[in-house]
Simulated assay, not measured.
Amino acid sequence: MTILDKYILKRYLVTFSVMLLLFIPIGIMANLAEQVGRMIDNEAPLNEIVYYYACFTVYIGSLLFPIFLFLSIIFFTSKLAGNTEIVAILSSGVSYGRFLRPYLIGATIIATIMFFMGMFLVPRASEGYNAFRYEYLKKGKADRVTSNIFNQLNENDYLYVSSFDPARQIGYNFTLEHFNGDQLEYKISAANIRWVEKDSTYRLTSYHKRTLENNQEIVETKRRLDTIFNFKIDDLTPVSYIAETKNIFELNDFIDAQRKKGASNINTYVLVKYKRWALPISAFILTVIAVAVSSVKRRGGMGINLAFGIGIAFIYIFFDKVFGTLAEQSGFPPLWAVVIPNLFFGILGVYLLKNAKR
């Protein structure tokens, strides 16, 4: 690694780190000022508040990594261009591709950190962050679908409840149908189903079971029945952020299980998976765009470069949100929802880089 590589790489990593250290505490203070009233009203314990902000730092930081990276590169590269350092480097016989190399090394380091954070660390932070939000900041608001819940547990069993109360762990108007191929073998219904944690059993009220056997119908009824099923009470309706709380291996298993159940919102979970893989790639795309935009000395100086860069960053976020919403709500393929924004901005980066070389 030459002096040039070390010089640019040091500026790359230091500026990015300083931007994180500057803006994340500001984000924490802004969030605390907004939410402190709710924390006091809902009597949030101090240790849980501290843990929430530790999770908040990791969770929000990971979301803003690409934007901080983009703006930090524009900031220090514009300073290099303003001091005519880039002109001196290129005039000495260094090619533009060679000048770009330390930026790509820096992008590789940041992308590696983003990869391991996104796959393993951020899911743990997301669990703590969202659990606190719904417990103390959004108290009373549902963190999952709670009405007209239909689930295919496996190839043979289908479950339905008209409504579910996650706080009390009780479902109303419960129905379980068991099939053998296309033939219904038995159907269980109850006014409600409740999870009794002390006994690790399910309690059915107004239990009714209808069994079809040898062209005969056998009916069994009980006022109350404690029994065991091969599903968890939370399987009725997972929390809306469940995919965010699982590491990559757990997420793969979860998606496979949801596919077998015929979950209607499977695209939401698959989208989370693909976004984790795409996040490190965005580090390279945004690095190339930022260098291409800011390596040219302009009359307006750093201000013009930052304004242009912020505009591109917001367009990037807009594209990501639009295609993500399409994948979640309209059946648009999640893979394309992730690929299209990155492909578009990758092509834009190549175009800007060619113009910058001229």
Results as ranks from 00 to 15, higher is better:
E220F: 08
P280C: 09
I193Q: 01
D182I: 03
S126Q: 06
S294V: 05
V161C: 01
N192D: 02
K10L: 10
D165N: 14
L104I: 14
F308R: 12
N130Y: 12
A283T: 08
L212S: 01
G300V: 01
N47D: 11
N180Y: 13
F249H: 02
Y241R: 05
I109L: 15
I228Q: 09
E135L: 12
N265M: 00
K187Y: 12
R194Y: 05
I281F: 15
N355S: 07
G309C: 01
R203S: 05
G93I: 03
L204I: 05
Y53K: 07
V58A: 00
D5G: 14
K139A: 11
F344Y: 06
E155S: 15
Y134L: 07
F120T: 00
G97S: 08
D320P: 00
A81N: 01
L104H: 06
I242C: 07
T237G: 12
I24W: 06
R11W: 13
T201C: 00
A88P: 13
K139D: 06
T175N: 13
N252R: 10
I315T: 15
I312R: 04
L90G: 04
F249I: 12
I193R: 02
I73F: 03
A263L: 01
A190L: 09
Y316T: 04
T77N: 11
Y172C: 07
L22S: 07
E155K: 15
T268L: 04
F76P: 11
N42S: 15
A44S: 11
Q152E: 13
Y351K: 04
N230Q: 10
L32H: 02
I110S: 11
I310D: 09
N31E: 15
R168G: 11
I285S: 02
L225G: 03
D256Y: 10
V296F: 01
F150G: 05
Y158I: 12
N156E: 14
M302K: 12
S72C: 05
L204H: 02
Y51K: 13
S17T: 15
I347S: 09
P280R: 06
K79W: 13
T227M: 09
F70R: 13
V293G: 02
Q183G: 09
D5N: 15
L4D: 07
I3F: 13
L184Q: 09
E197N: 04
S264H: 00
A278D: 12
I285T: 06
M19Y: 11
D41H: 06
L212C: 00
N148Q: 04
P238H: 12
M114S: 14
A327V: 02
A327G: 02
A191T: 03
G324T: 10
Y269H: 11
D199S: 12
N230D: 14
N83F: 05
T77P: 03
P333A: 04
M117P: 01
T84C: 11
N156T: 11
P102K: 06
P45H: 06
V18K: 11
R298K: 10
A131V: 12
M114P: 03
S78N: 09
L271F: 10
D320N: 04
I312S: 05
R224N: 09
A278F: 14
E220S: 04
T2C: 01
I113M: 07
C55N: 06
S330T: 13
F116Q: 05
L100T: 04
S163A: 10
V18M: 14
V36K: 08
I317P: 12
M29V: 14
P45W: 10
T237W: 02
I285Y: 03
G61F: 03
W336V: 02
P66D: 06
L69E: 11
V122W: 00
I289M: 14
I26S: 13
